[in-house]
Design a protein around this nucleic acid. Structure first.
Length: 646
RNA sequence: GCCCCCGUAGUUCAACGGACAGAACGCGGACCUCCUAAGUCUGAAAUGCAGGUUCAAUUCCUGCCGGGGGCACCA
């Protein structure tokens, strides 16, 4: 695999070297960035401002000196693998920036590089095959998945592909709580809710959606039913009970329907972890044996939490006081049953292989995905599995921001137990809520009399946009406008995923149906369209990528459109890394949009096939091929395919 | 009460402490006898309030105002 060099890093270290030689000082806290305004070059640094304090000189003076030195050193000597100079100038500008401009020669060779590297352009092997357990989707198996889950899955798939692209081994885990309150509620509803008929629904999980909402409202009004639910939950502690079996069957039926939904948008998983198997395996008991010998885990003999086991959350001198501290987190109730957080600590210890146990696994031919799908199993005949999903190097959990506190407790607990490395290697990918706009809420029949700007989805009330319904609506809109064309599914999936990924992950977003159905402008189809145009030109030219790869352009002049495109496309490898490391799919969306805009402008103003100068024509075609390749690579990371025609 | 996140054009979102705060939708103009108009060009329009730190603040700090989430022997 070819490795794309990182110009930003090269520039950074070269600046450090020059500063050392010029002023004999070491600097680190300066930045190298792409200036917003292209007139200021391709890279820019604020080094002069940083130095001005220590050197007690005006920034402009420093910038002047450093830009001179840079011209002598960086511009003259910094070359790529083929000995081409990367920069053509380094200039200082008031109030004290040093700006670097990429050389025309180097820029012209970028498309060639991209065409040669194909899918590998932007990839790297920094991950070195380290394993990441990536947990996402995690829909409770008691009802259909909604757009909140969709956001989770989209972010998850982006991380899966991005980290694979950086050389990590990513294993996608789907945690299914098949013995929780939610499934129990749906299960009760299956028997008690009689005014809803499964025959009226296209999918069973949609039926379950309404049953769940109906049952919840009945339980909330009836203490007797609440008691019954508690009893049922208790019975589920026994894996051999009738209730347990019935419950598992129901959960699996709904899970299957959820997988069908996710298949429709191309999501894949490696393993489904059943909560019931976590119970069967006694993960908790094994973990608790380790936990209770640790000085940071203690038994409260007095206080509000008398009789409970707690984990310390504040760094404090370890004392043998048995009195509980208010901030500390209860992990075992006074009746001996572990809390959710307690079990989660155990679960994460399993992920890192800190417990000496593992599940059995068996294959599930769900027919819903491209990868092999495994599920955990407590059946002794599966105890010797050919696979294992334990003992990973990193754990990334794509979980809503509302669980930040709980996850923080798990992380801290791992640390306090001495698993410092594991604690650091566990990352919470938190993402904001998906609210509904007032219009959309009204459309769903929610009460909007209080006139707020947005409304929360509520599974318990049956309020939310099901993913299946969204898909259907987008498909409907597309076929209304463009007919039933061959690549409708690809365009629809692109539209939906891009929509979910373009905002910052930590931001709450307001989902509006009208906006989701409006696929113009900053959208997936816009980028797919740029691909289709590039593709079409190349097809008509009759020239193959292999032939274009031979082209070594050396044009004296480039048009503004061509230069703009080049000055955008070379950034791709940097974006790939930034988007992955910062959990920022939106950075990739942004980049692809900017690239497509630049390509569209080029396409609009510049003749390609009609160009008479052979060299120019070839170069323009290679620009098309390069753009096409980068769009394919970038969209792939977002989980989006490209249509051959639109 | 304590903790976390968020307040940017009419709306939905950008902006690692940087150089005139970017887009998209919507609104107002202009472009198909050249490779796909799901497109291009173009106009109007914004940093909640008050202080502070800095050469430089949407970004950092303090206070206030507004919105969301969390702080369970729930999951």
């Amino acid at each position: 695999m070819l490795k794309t060099m990182n110009i930003e890093e090269m520039l950074h270290s070269n600046i450090i070297k020059i500063v050392k030689e010029t002023y004999d000082v070491d600097v680190k806290d300066f930045i190298v960035e792409h200036p917003d305004n292209r007139e200021f070059g391709d890279y820019s640094t604020n080094i002069a401002f940083i130095l001005s304090k220590t050197l007690k000189q005006p920034p402009l003076e420093i910038a002047k000196k450093l830009s001179y030195r840079s011209t002598q050193e960086i511009v003259k000597t910094l070359t790529d693998a083929k000995e081409n100079r990367i920069f053509e100038s380094a200039e200082f500008v008031a109030p004290g920036f040093v700006n670097f401009k990429l050389s025309k020669r180097w820029l012209q060779l970028v498309p060639n590089e991209i065409i040669l590297q194909e899918k590998a352009y932007g990839s790297s092997d920094v991950g070195g095959g380290k394993r990441i357990a990536l947990e996402h989707s995690n829909v409770n198996p008691n009802k259909a998945a909604h757009v909140g889950h969709l956001r989770n899955a989209c972010i998850g798939q982006f991380l899966e592909r991005s980290y694979e692209n950086l050389g990590y081994n990513v294993e996608v885990q789907y945690y299914a709580n098949n013995v929780g309150v939610q499934v129990v509620t749906s299960s009760m509803g299956m028997e008690m809710v009689n005014d809803i008929n499964p025959g009226d629904y296209e999918k069973f999980d949609h039926y379950a959606w309404d049953v769940y909402a109906s049952m919840e409202s009945r339980i909330s009004e009836d203490p007797e039913l609440q008691k019954k639910r508690q009893e049922l939950l208790l019975k589920l502690e026994d894996p051999n009970s009738e209730e347990f079996k019935k419950q598992s069957i129901l959960a699996n039926k709904i899970l299957m329907d959820q997988l069908i939904t996710f298949k429709e948008l191309g999501f894949d998983y490696d393993v489904i972890i059943y909560e019931s198997d976590i119970l069967m395996l006694d993960l908790w008991k094994k973990a608790f044996e380790m936990l209770k010998t640790n000085p940071n885990v203690y038994y409260a003999e007095t206080g509000n939490s008398k009789g409970c086991w707690l984990v310390r959350l504040k760094e404090q001198p370890i004392q043998n006081s048995a009195e509980d501290v208010e901030e500390d987190k209860i992990i075992v109730r006074s009746n001996g049953v572990p809390t959710y957080t307690g079990k989660d600590i155990a679960y994460h210890m399993w992920k890192f292989g800190l417990l000496d146990v593992d599940f059995g696994y068996k294959k599930w031919n769900s027919g819903t995905q491209k990868k092999e799908l495994w599920v955990t199993s407590s059946d002794p005949e599966n105890s010797l599995s050919p696979v294992s999903f334990s003992k990973v190097d990193y754990v990334y959990d794509v979980i809503g921001t509302e669980q930040s506190y709980a996850i923080d407790v798990v992380k801290k607990s791992l640390g306090y137990l001495g698993f410092t490395k594991e604690s650091e290697n566990m990352k919470h990918v938190n993402y904001g809520f998906v609210f509904l706009s007032k219009d959309t809420a009204r459309l769903l029949g929610m009460d909007v009399a209080d006139d707020k700007d947005f409304y929360a989805m509520k599974g318990r009330r049956g309020w939310g946009i099901k993913i299946d319904d969204l898909i259907k609506m987008v498909d409907g809109r597309l076929s209304d406008e463009y007919g039933n064309f061959e690549y409708l599914t690809t365009v629809r999936t692109g539209a939906i995923k891009f929509q979910m990924l373009k905002p910052n992950t930590f931001q709450d977003i307001v989902f509006d149906l009208n906006e989701a159905l409006d696929i113009k402008g900053y959208s997936g189809p816009y980028i797919q369209y740029a691909y289709v145009r590039a593709n079409s030109v190349l097809a008509k030219s009759g020239i193959t990528p292999a032939e274009l790869a031979e082209v070594q352009p050396d044009l004296p002049e480039l048009s503004e459109r061509e230069t703009d495109l080049l000055r955008t496309i070379y950034k791709y490898p940097e974006i790939v890394q930034k988007a992955a490391y910062n959990f920022s799919p939106n950075a990739m969306c942004d980049f692809l949009f900017e690239l497509s805009k630049s390509f569209n402008a080029f396409y609009n103003d510049i003749h390609i096939l009609g160009e008479e100068n052979h060299d120019k024509k070839l170069f323009r075609l290679s620009l098309c091929a390069a753009t096409r390749q980068v769009v394919v690579n970038g969209l792939y990371l977002l989980g989006i395919d490209v249509p051959e025609k639109m």
